[in-house]
């Protein structure tokens, strides 16, 4: 086997259920910060009194626009930025008091490519493991296993300059995992990747997390945070404005689901008439759960608290009224909506 066996006691703390700690019986947090603050010499309060708790096994996201302070928080948690005030522990280690020890329990994937260009793909993994006291054999075996897992075996002997953006990013993640860190940090891991590589990376990260890896990721893409994270902290100007599961965040801002309903025209090419749309609007507006409906862009938009269970009722109502439905699309409330409601601004500007 390639994995070093974890001590029995430690293995029991596997994160599968720790991701949803029972009330009261919460496990020791993987990350705990208290009033964590960074004021740069310029006087800028990049991070201002942040309290964060990340549970073992959790996939945690820091979501915020550029300059929100995400990288600075990761910097402090990974021993690279000295906090001006406050405290931070990762896997129980005080990152300020014991930086060298803290580095043993964390794996970091920084925002830019920092692969060692003087080494081959395999050697990037191998020497990383050697830094962490893996013997030659152990390091070699683990490198091969991770190359396999991250689909880089074909490239094992090339220099890292020859990797595509997606491969380089996978190698960076593999390298960060070589020493079996308790905590994996990723700073905007999908910036600059093409959509396909981004989706592939999402799957990869989800799988890692399902296998028990605790992950903290920063992003300014709200779909990314929504898709990947168990919990998301929404950041702006160095403050955490809200931290919760994406679903709960959306619920708290009273965001709504929008269902767009298209009506069939009289023929293939002809769009439905205004009368037809108006009648459909009337029918759908009366369906329980729909707050209000309007005709927009040749479709009927139904605004509802939630799309859950709503679609069958909409279809039935339309059929009973004899209007019928040719297409349905649902847009759930997004973290974008949450961000706007918290800050009054758009996430990307």
């Amino acid at each position: 086997m390639t994995t070093t066996p974890a001590p029995a006691g430690a293995a029991a703390a596997t994160a599968g259920d720790a991701a949803h700690p029972a009330d009261g019986g919460a496990p020791a947090p993987m990350i705990a910060t208290e009033a964590l603050t960074k004021v740069f010499p310029s006087g800028l309060r990049a991070v201002d009194g942040v309290d964060l708790t990340v549970a073992p096994g959790e996939f945690f996201g820091l979501l915020g626009p550029n300059g929100a302070g995400k990288t600075t928080i990761i910097g402090m948690l990974t021993t690279r930025v000295q906090p001006t005030a406050g405290r931070a522990r990762v896997a129980g280690v005080d990152v300020v008091a014991q930086p060298a020890r803290a580095k043993r329990v964390i794996g970091v994937v920084p925002q830019t490519n920092t692969l060692d260009r003087s080494l081959s793909v395999r050697e990037n993994l191998h020497y990383h493991a050697r830094f962490f006291a893996y013997g030659r054999r152990q390091a070699a075996e683990r490198a091969e296993a991770l190359l396999e897992q991250f689909r880089l075996t074909d490239k094992r002997d090339v220099l890292v300059d020859e990797l595509s953006g997606g491969m380089a990013q996978r190698l960076m993640i593999a390298r960060a995992l070589m020493h079996e860190p308790a905590m994996l940090f990723l700073d905007e891991p999908t910036v600059g990747l093409d959509p396909q590589s981004r989706i592939a990376l999402w799957e990869l990260l989800s799988e890692l997390n399902e296998d028990g890896q605790t992950v903290l990721l920063t992003t300014h893409y709200m779909e990314e945070a929504d898709h990947l994270c168990d919990r998301v902290a929404i950041m702006d100007h160095g403050h955490v404005l809200a931290a919760d599961s994406p679903a709960e965040l959306k619920r708290t801002v009273d965001a709504e689901a929008i269902v767009r309903v298209a009506a069939p025209g009289r023929s293939e090419v002809e769009p439905p008439s205004p009368d037809q749309l108006a009648r459909l609007r009337g029918v759908l507006a009366a369906v329980p759960g729909v707050r209000w409906a309007e005709v927009r862009d040749g479709q009927v938009e139904c605004h509802a608290d939630s799309a859950r269970g709503l679609l069958p009722r909409l279809v039935t109502a339309a059929e009973e009224a004899g209007t019928g439905i040719s297409d349905l699309s649902v847009s759930e409330p997004s973290l974008e909506t949450v961000f706007v409601s918290l800050t009054g601004r758009e996430l990307r500007e």
């Binding site: 390639t2 994995t3 129980g92 006291a133 296993a145 991770l146 079996e180």
Partner: peptide
Amino acid sequence: MTAVAETPSPARAAAPARGPAE
């Protein structure tokens, strides 16, 4: 992605104190 799913995950992680450095 199936290839990834089938491989036993060497990157499996559980609790803090692991790895030879400890």
